[in-house]
Design a protein around this nucleic acid. Sequence first.
RNA 1: GCCACUGUAGCUCAGUGGUAGAGCGCACCCUUGGUAAGGGUGAGGUCGUGAGUUCAAAUCUCACCAGCGGCUCCA
Length: 692
Amino acid sequence: MPQITLPDGSIKSFDHPVSAFDVAMSIGERLAKACVGCLIDEELCDLNTVIENDCTLSLVTEKTRDKQDDPNALFLLRHSAAHVMAEAIQRIIPGAMLVYGPPLENSFYYDIAFPEDRPLREGDFEAIEAEMSKIIKEDRPFTRYELEYAEGIKKVESEGSKYKLDNAHRAHEAGSLSLTFYATGEPGKDWEDLCRGPHVPSTGRIGAFKIMSLASSYWHGDENSDRLTRVYGTAFFNKKDLKAHLERLEEAKKRDHRVLGKKLHLFHIDETVGQGLILWTPNGAVIRKELQDFISAELTKQGYHEVFTPHIGKLDLYRTSGHFPYYAESQFTPLIERDFMVKLSDEGCSCSHLSNYINKGEIDGFMLKPMNCPHHIKIYDSQPRSYKDLPVRLAEFGTVYRWEQSGELNGMTRVRGFTQDDAHLFCTPDQIGQEMQGCLSLVKTIFNILGMSDYRVRVGLRDPDSCKYTGEPANWDKAEQACREAAQTLGVPFTEEPGEAAFYGPKIDFIVKDVIGREWQLGTVQVDYNLPERFDLSYIGADNEKHRPVMIHRAPFGSMERFIGVLIEHFAGAFPVWLAPEQVRVLPISEKSNEYAHEVMSALHAVGIRATMDNHDQRVQAKIKNGSEMKIPYLLIVGPRDAQSRAVSVRAFGTEKDLGQMPLDNFVSAIREEYRTKGRSCVRDRFTPTAV
RNA sequence: GCCACUGUAGCUCAGUGGUAGAGCGCACCCUUGGUAAGGGUGAGGUCGUGAGUUCAAAUCUCACCAGCGGCUCCA
C-alpha cells in the first residue's frame, strides 16, 4: 500500500492505490482544483495517474510556492494547447497529418503535413482560434489510455499516417512496450492522438492562447526529407499573462538592433549594394572605431603585431588550405582570370562545363577570402623562424566574405561580408596552454568592460562519427585536451559539445543571446595542428632541426558586425560615453543662448568629445525629448543663467530630473575622464552630495 | 535553399478596383522659451521591380527582388 512522501517531508499513507488528484483532495479541495499535474518521483505525470507504490509526490499548480510561474505547469499547458490546436486544424483541414507537437520554453508548435492542394495560411488563424476556443469551452478531459505495442501499432496503421507510424516505431525502438494515446474527451468518440503525455486535466484549463506564426520545417530535421508546416502558438493560464508575454515581445522588438540601427542611424543595408553587406554609417563607424582602437591597444599589451592583407587571394592558396573547392558552396564564386576565360571560350567551353570545372576546382583565378588564416600563414612563412621568435602573434581586422544562404541573413548578426578581429598565433606545442589562456583573458577583459556577463562557453569537439575533419587523430586528441584545460582556467561553466569543432581543429566559443532569444556565436579560440601541416610551416628549434609550429586562431569579438549587433541590443542603444556616437548634445534655451552653446560645444570638441548642438527653433522640452530618444549620454541645457556663470545644466540619460548645474570647465574635465576611463570615472559622481 | 507573411513619403504606418493619406522628421514664418512634443504654412511618393487581367490596378494574377519569422546550414 502506497506511502507517499510530499515535498515538505510529510508522509501520507493509503491502504489502496490512489490518484495524485485523490492525494491533493486529501489535503484540500482548493488545492486539488488548482492542480494541473504532478511529479511522481521527479517525473512529470497526469494528475489522475494512479499511484500504487511508495513514491515522492509533488503537486504541480500554476504558480510555485513563491508565486512564480511553474515551468512544469506551463509545459503541461502548452503541450495540451498543441493538442487542442491540432484538433482545431484537423477540423478545418481534414487531410492534415500530424507529425510532432512539443511545448517549448515560451510557446509550442505542431509540425503538420498539409495536403498539397490545401496549405495552411495565416488567414486560417482566426478560424482555428475560434475552433480552439470551442474545444476549450467544452472543457473536455484529456484521457490517457495505453495499448500493448502490437495492438497499438495496428491502430496507428489503420489511421494511415506514416508520420505517426514512424513516431510509434521510434517509441518502440526506444524501449517502450506499449503505446499511449490521449483522447480529448472520450476514447473512441472524441479526437485523439498518439502521445506520451502528460497533459493538464482538461481543455478548460487553457486560459489564454494565441497562434503566433507559420514556418516550414523538415521531417526529422533532414532537408532531404518531407517538408512540413510548423505552426507556432503560445498559451498561458490566464489572459493577463498572455498579454504580458505579448508586451514583452513588443518591448524586445524595440531593443532589436535592426530597429535601433535605423532609429539611431548606426548602419544601413542597401539591396542595390547586396543583401548581407553592411554599410557602416558615421554613427556606427564611431562605435566600431572605438572598439577596434580598444582591442588594438589590448593586443599591443599582449605582444601582438598588426598586419594588413588583401581581400582576395589566388585559388591555389585556398587549394592548399583546403577551402577550395571543398567549401565552394559557402563561398562567393571564384573570380576567374580573363585570359583563362578566353582560353576556355576558345575551347568551346559551355556554362555547364565551366560550372563543372569550378566544382572540381580545375580553374585558375582568385577568391574573395572566406578566412584570414591563409594570408597570415604566408606572412609567417615569409621568413625563417627560430624557436626564439615564437610565439608569433599576427593580428588583423580582416574582412572576409562567405556565401550564406539567403534565408539565413539577419541584420548585422548574419551577413555575407564581415570583419573579424582576427589573429593567428604560431607557437610551439608547449606554448599552447599559455597562449590559449592569454586569448581567453582578453575575451574576459572585453566582456567585463562592456558589462556582458550573460554568455555561455562551449568547447567544440570533433564528432567521432564524421569524416569531415582533416588531420591526425593523435593531434586532435592533443588539441582537444588543450581546449579543455584552457576552458577550465576560465572560471566559468562550459559545456563540451561533440560535432561543434571546426574542420581543422577544436575550439572554444563564446555564445550570447539576442533580444528574441536566438543564440549567436561571438568570440572563438581554436587550436589548429592541420593548417601548419598543409602549408608545411616550420621553425628551427634549439636542436637546429626543423619543427612544426601549432596555430591558434582567435577572434574575441567574432566579427565587428555581429558583435556590434549584439552590443546594440545589450545596451538597448544607450551606449556608454566611450562608445556613444554622440556623447553630448548642447541645448540652448533660446536663440539668445546660441552663442554660449557654441562656446560650450567648442570647448568639448577641443578635448576630443563628440558633441553637437540642437539649435532648432523649439522649446527646450522638445529638445530634451529628442535628445533622450536618441539616447545621448549627456544633454547640457544652457541658458542665460548658465552663460553668466560659465556653467552648464547637466542631464544624464536615464535620469528623470537633471543632475544640476556644474561649471563648464569641470564638466569638460569630468566627461573627458569618463571617456578616457571607459566609465570607471563618471560625470555623475561629481554630483554626489559631498561634491556639491 | 525551403514554407508563410510583408514591401505605400526620410521614419512609423492607414488605404482592397475609380483623382495617393496621417503622424513624426524636413523647409519657411510666428513664437525667445529653464528640464520628455508651442502654433501656422509648405515641400516631399512611377505605391519594391517586371509582365498580365480590366474601360480603369497601390488594390486582382504570375514571375522576380528584398525584408521578417521559423527550418536547414554556418568550413
